[in-house]
Design a protein around this nucleic acid. Sequence first.
RNA 1: GGGCCCUUAGCUCAGUUGGUUAGAGCGCUACCUUGACAUGGUAGAGGUCAGAGAUUCGAAUUCUCUAGGGCCCACCA
Length: 883
Amino acid sequence: METNIEKNYEPKNIEKKWYKTWLEKKSFAPDMKAQESFSIIMPPPNVTGKLHMGHALDNTCQDILIRHKRMSGFCTLWIPGTDHAGIATQAKVEKKIFKEEKKTKHDLGRDEFLKRIWEWKEQYGEEITNQLKTLGASCYWDYECFTMDETPNKAVRKVFTQLYNEGLIYKDKRIINWDTVLQSAISDAEVEYKEINGKFYHIHYKVEGSDEVLEIATTRPETLFGDSAVAVNPKDPRFKKLIGKKAIIPICNRVVPIIGDSHVDMELGTGCLKVTPGHDFNDFEIGKRHNLEVINILNPDGTLNENAKAVEGLNCNEGRKKTISLLEELEILVDTKKHKHQVAHGERSDSVIEPIVSTQWFLNVQDMAKQSLQSVKKGKMNFVPKQWENTFFSWMNEPRDWCLSRQLWWGHRIPVYTCNACEHEFSFESEPSECPKCQSHKIEQDPDVLDTWFSSGLWPLSTLGWPNEEEMEKKKFTTFYPNSMLVTGYDIIFFWVARMSMMSLKLTKTVPFKDVYLHGLVRDKEGRKMSKSLGNGIDPIETIEKYGCDAVRFTLANGCGHNRGFNLDPQLIESSRNFMNKIWNAFRFISPFIKRKVGNYKVDLKNIDTPTKWILTELTYTSEKMNKHLDDYRFDEAASSVYSFVYDKFCSWYLELSKPILYGEDQDAIKKRSKILRYLFEELLKLLHPISPFITEEIWSYFDQESLIISQKYPTRDESLIFSDEHEQMSHFIEVITQIRNMRSSVGLKPKEKIEIQFFTNHKKTSTFLYENRHYLESLAQVSKGVVYSKEDERPKKSTMATTSIVETYIPLEGLIDINAEISRIEKQISKVKKDYEKVENKLKNPKFADNAPDEVVEEVKLKGKNLKIKIDALEKNIASMN
RNA sequence: GGGCCCUUAGCUCAGUUGGUUAGAGCGCUACCUUGACAUGGUAGAGGUCAGAGAUUCGAAUUCUCUAGGGCCCACCA
């Protein structure tokens, strides 16, 4: 075969070549002839985003699963897509336009601005999909979908209208989280709380018509302009007599009622609470209970408005400072205390979130959440690892209605219209031309758009053509829905998983997928989140360029157990790269012996030697493990299983054991061994392919130009390849050889120095085996002569020895080494083994152990004890022979 | 304030229903440029499984508490 194979594996060009080939050959297309389907949707990344390690992990997991299922004969479909990511994308484009043209979106107008975002999307939207291709993602691009495509839009309008007509979607004036930078409402889930070192300001409010003052503690004095009441706990003996009286708000001198409300904590602050229904969630509730006026003191951009006269036009921080100085002037700021508290910040903008009262669209999720909760409790939808159920439950148990509307332009526009003629309000699935009530054409659409997660929530449906029946037929909706599973990060359980499950249950009465596998977050070596500000991010694309995609994927898989994430050390990637190189060189080694040929290689199981039976057994055990681990989403176990087979079994032993044959004279033997090597190599490539697709496809092509490994059948456990006896013998032989090497090393023999060895055993099979395979000892342990004796024979004097439970191995040293050092080495060994033996003895002496432990365990321990005793005896004999 | 999770070799992590002599990779040490591979080979050192207690014949594994770390939720002015 090829003689000019590169010495080192160079992944660069190979990867591009194979991805292209797979696309050309439609390798990613579902095989509609297959019996069972396996479908997953890709969590759609932001269309103008960039791949980060989280994506790389997420998609590697998915690709491993899909490739495994594809090779296992499933009708596989992995649907790629991208998300319009309303807020993020709009903000990005806004920024860019302002930077380049000094224009705001209002300068451009809605239509023009949207046009610009679409242009931006066309221009940069491909980057992320190209990066997915670099990662080797074997998704079916024919199904590629964008959340703002026609079908998802149809789905959105249909669902919105349905829920609107059912009364589940409603408009309400309530207090919501307002992002002053984005100038939009955001949902509870998009708010993060950060601990801020703030201050408690103690302010005196006068009680009307008396000299009494109320000391009120607040962290936000500037909101006093929006106060509608002062509240105390009705049980508070200090203040309850004041309930019903009035208080005077300082600076603006407005008179407000003093009310009693049990929400007020007597212990906290001063026990007196200023009530600002327009700018605090609790106060809003208090206000509702007491019918208080809602005063808005903020403009949409977060500056104070005309209701806060003394500080109008300032932002909250400035307003706070000015209010404080005004209060100081009035000498009613009586105390300032340091106070740590949680302050709401926008997830996207990172600006302080202002609670304001505004009219928004809400979705009543109470019932949907209950259904969804049940589906998990009944096991229709499973979280893997299971502990994530708790996170899911904690949210679903007490769901808050979902604020759907966003004051943005980029997104699915709310399909609600108001008739200017008759004021009729209605939601409509398609674009309406007239008011259904009065037929007037003067209808106006709600200006707001929907929360991005609304369309994401419909993703399992809309990617399969729903609700367009023709398209559903075309996309084989019934075959692929519900999806088999979902892979995503735990950080979007609420945002996404919960919403998809609620929507799907509501609309189709089925869960969207059976399993939800949640991987951890990829962190840096020190366990910190990768972030731009820390500069500790590892760019997956750069890493792929440096080490190769297969190495990166292997590293990610290897680190992806059922934990809460893992810390990615670039050194780990390096070692995966080395592993790929190892495979490459193993291939390079066998390549001269194999012929490129089409067709499956059947191994001839007749007349094969013990090492071959051993490796075949190992192979089929590995196949079994791989299938199990991948079915269990144990990517880490799968990666280490295949690693161990390739490295420790195949390369370290079987190839070494094959060398004497391949370099020998016997042409038939060479031919035979070559065939087996080829078979083994093909199988290990298949086993590895889901994790590291490129190198395996590349090597496969040297074996077989006609077919692709991507569509080969994945190996499974094969009973005909299991040779238990030979496997055991070989394992024992490996142990003996390791012992010899160990002895050589500890005695200080030069690696090339040939030695003679004497074995002592009464085990017939073993003695025959050792005799017949003594030639291996030469190549593997530099043994020039190996003689097998019976245990009754005399041991050689002045030798070093090692023993297994079956065979003692002696190396006569003939004054080559320091005997005393050797004696102490053996003594050390004896004491170690004796310690183990004692442990076992004590266990066996204990009558309770024999009574309680299962028989097989007792037997096992007995056997262990027996073997240890044999070892001790042998070692002691060796010591005795030293003198 | 509630909830979840973590603590195993210098580092990153496995260890599934309690039955091991507690594993892997990296790193480290010694020796080796033997015709697949120095992105390599062979061998080795290194752990009282965070601590205390309980259950058990037997605990890294189950329970309780303590210490340290992480995450999520929550309106604490």
